[in-house]
Deep mutational scan, measured.
Amino acid sequence: KELVSALYDYQEKSPREVTMKKGDILTLLNSTNKDWWKVEVNGRQGFVPAAYVKKL
């Protein structure tokens, strides 16, 4: 599985998104959309802005 690192804090703005803190390591589930990537963090799945994470 592919991992990404959070470059910035992000506070979810809808139920489809997830909150992350800078430095968090997230499991990348889907990166086909260039703007929003689906990740899993702390057992929750949702979307984060692609520009806020980088692949490890």
Rank of each mutant, 00 (worst) to 15 (best):
K1I: 14
K1T: 12
K1F: 14
E2S: 13
E2Y: 12
E2P: 12
E2T: 14
L3S: 08
L3I: 10
L3F: 14
V4G: 14
V4E: 01
V4C: 14
S5I: 15
S5R: 15
S5H: 13
S5L: 15
S5G: 09
S5Q: 15
S5T: 15
S5F: 15
A6L: 02
A6H: 01
A6P: 02
A6E: 01
L7F: 04
L7A: 06
Y8R: 14
Y8L: 11
Y8T: 09
D9C: 07
D9I: 02
D9H: 05
D9M: 03
D9R: 03
D9F: 04
Y10T: 01
Y10Q: 00
Y10V: 01
Y10W: 11
Q11N: 14
Q11Y: 14
Q11W: 13
Q11A: 13
E12V: 06
E12S: 15
E12L: 07
E12Q: 13
E12P: 15
E12N: 08
E12A: 15
E12Y: 05
K13V: 09
K13P: 05
K13S: 11
S14I: 05
S14L: 08
S14M: 08
P15S: 13
P15L: 10
R16K: 13
R16L: 14
R16Y: 14
R16S: 13
E17K: 04
E17G: 13
E17P: 04
E17R: 04
V18E: 00
V18R: 02
V18N: 03
V18L: 14
V18M: 10
V18Q: 03
V18D: 00
T19A: 07
T19K: 04
T19C: 05
T19I: 03
T19M: 04
M20F: 10
M20Y: 02
M20V: 10
M20D: 00
M20K: 00
M20Q: 01
M20C: 06
M20T: 03
K21F: 10
K21E: 07
K21S: 09
K21V: 10
K21L: 08
K21T: 09
K22E: 08
K22F: 07
K22H: 07
K22C: 08
K22R: 12
K22G: 05
K22T: 08
G23L: 03
G23I: 01
G23R: 03
G23W: 04
D24F: 04
D24E: 11
D24V: 05
D24A: 07
D24K: 02
I25Y: 05
I25H: 06
I25Q: 06
I25N: 04
I25T: 08
I25R: 06
I25S: 04
I25P: 03
L26D: 00
L26I: 08
L26M: 14
L26P: 01
L26A: 10
L26N: 00
T27G: 06
T27Q: 11
T27A: 10
T27I: 15
L28N: 00
L28E: 01
L28D: 01
L28C: 05
L28H: 01
L29H: 05
L29A: 02
L29V: 12
L29Y: 04
L29G: 00
L29I: 14
L29E: 03
L29T: 04
N30L: 09
N30K: 07
S31D: 15
S31L: 05
S31N: 09
S31W: 09
S31A: 13
S31K: 09
T32L: 10
T32I: 09
T32A: 12
T32H: 12
T32V: 11
T32C: 15
N33C: 12
N33E: 11
N33W: 07
N33Y: 09
N33A: 09
K34H: 11
K34M: 10
K34L: 10
K34E: 12
D35C: 14
D35P: 02
D35W: 15
D35S: 11
D35K: 13
D35Y: 15
D35E: 12
D35Q: 11
W36T: 02
W36I: 03
W36G: 00
W36V: 03
W37A: 05
W37V: 08
W37S: 03
K38H: 12
K38L: 15
K38D: 04
K38F: 15
V39C: 04
V39A: 01
V39D: 00
V39Q: 00
V39T: 01
E40R: 06
E40M: 08
E40P: 00
E40I: 07
V41D: 04
V41I: 15
V41C: 10
V41P: 00
V41W: 07
V41N: 11
V41K: 13
N42L: 08
N42V: 05
N42M: 08
N42Y: 08
G43C: 06
G43K: 05
G43M: 05
G43H: 06
G43N: 07
G43D: 07
R44S: 06
R44V: 10
Q45A: 12
Q45S: 12
Q45E: 13
Q45C: 12
Q45F: 08
Q45H: 08
G46Y: 04
G46K: 02
G46S: 02
F47G: 01
F47I: 07
F47P: 00
V48Q: 00
V48H: 00
V48N: 00
V48T: 01
V48K: 00
V48G: 01
V48C: 02
P49M: 03
P49W: 02
P49L: 03
P49A: 02
P49I: 02
P49R: 03
P49E: 02
A50C: 08
A50K: 07
A50W: 01
A50S: 13
A50V: 06
A50Y: 02
A50E: 04
A51G: 13
A51Y: 11
A51F: 10
Y52I: 10
Y52T: 10
Y52L: 15
Y52F: 14
V53Y: 01
V53E: 02
V53N: 00
V53P: 02
K54I: 14
K54L: 11
K54Y: 10
K54T: 14
K55H: 12
K55N: 09
K55R: 13
K55A: 11
L56Y: 10
L56G: 07
